[in-house]
Amino acid sequence: MERLFDSFANAVARWTGSPATFLICVIVVVAWAVAGPFFGFSETWQLVINTGTTIVTFLMVFLIQNTQNRDSAALQTKLDELIRTSDAEDDFIGIERLTDKELIALHARCEDAAKQSQATLAKAQAERRRRGHAGMEAERLK
């Protein structure tokens, strides 16, 4: 049952996200608007579009959420595997289960490490420039 629902949710998500589906929806709305004068812009005429869009929106929320949950879990698993097999710190595996406070602390730690890396890089670049200019001065003096 679960695999059937997953297949259905994926197929519907692909179909509803296509340009053709958008065009069909635009045509339906235009046809509804054009039909307004023929129905005297009645409450029934308004109810048709309101009911239709509400039902579609209600159902699509669950299908989209299912697809996003699955995609997110797959992406997280891939990232965890890349972290596990690289020189990265294993502390990052499974961080999606941390509390907000723990995530903020980990993010701050990463920002500090990035600032240190940028400072080291800037220092190395300045040293290369200095040596490059010093090398050119030595050449000119010869």
Score class of each variant (00 low, 15 high):
53 T>P: 05
44 T>W: 05
69 N>V: 09
51 T>F: 03
107 H>I: 04
105 A>H: 10
42 S>H: 01
77 T>H: 13
49 I>P: 00
61 V>F: 07
48 V>Q: 03
107 H>M: 07
72 S>Y: 12
107 H>S: 11
45 W>V: 00
92 F>I: 06
97 R>N: 06
94 G>E: 04
81 E>S: 14
52 G>W: 13
96 E>K: 08
107 H>C: 06
64 I>E: 03
86 S>P: 00
90 D>R: 11
77 T>I: 08
52 G>Q: 12
72 S>M: 11
73 A>T: 06
54 T>V: 07
91 D>L: 13
92 F>Q: 03
97 R>Y: 05
61 V>T: 09
70 R>K: 14
57 T>F: 15
89 E>S: 14
45 W>P: 00
59 L>R: 11
84 R>E: 12
69 N>W: 13
100 D>F: 04
61 V>N: 05
65 Q>C: 12
108 A>R: 03
94 G>D: 02
55 I>P: 03
57 T>P: 03
46 Q>R: 15
106 L>K: 03
65 Q>M: 15
90 D>S: 10
49 I>D: 01
71 D>C: 09
94 G>L: 01
90 D>C: 06
108 A>L: 07
99 T>R: 01
62 F>K: 04
111 E>P: 02
60 M>A: 09
79 L>P: 01
57 T>R: 12
93 I>W: 05
102 E>G: 01
54 T>P: 00
111 E>Q: 11
109 R>C: 01
51 T>Y: 04
54 T>Y: 09
66 N>E: 08
65 Q>L: 13
97 R>F: 04
111 E>G: 02
52 G>A: 13
114 A>L: 14
75 L>P: 04
67 T>K: 14
84 R>V: 07
82 L>T: 10
112 D>R: 04
83 I>T: 06
98 L>C: 04
49 I>Q: 04
87 D>C: 02
91 D>M: 09
98 L>D: 09
96 E>L: 07
94 G>F: 00
66 N>T: 10
89 E>A: 13
74 A>H: 15
93 I>K: 02
87 D>F: 04
110 C>D: 10
100 D>Y: 08
111 E>D: 10
68 Q>H: 14
72 S>G: 12
91 D>C: 12
69 N>M: 12
80 D>C: 00
107 H>Y: 05
54 T>K: 08
84 R>Y: 11
109 R>P: 00
103 L>C: 04
44 T>F: 04
109 R>D: 02
75 L>W: 11
91 D>G: 08
80 D>R: 00
55 I>A: 14
101 K>M: 13
97 R>C: 07
109 R>E: 05
68 Q>P: 05
112 D>G: 01
96 E>N: 13
74 A>W: 14
68 Q>S: 13
102 E>P: 00
85 T>Q: 11
77 T>R: 15
83 I>Q: 07
68 Q>E: 14
85 T>C: 09
93 I>A: 02
76 Q>A: 15
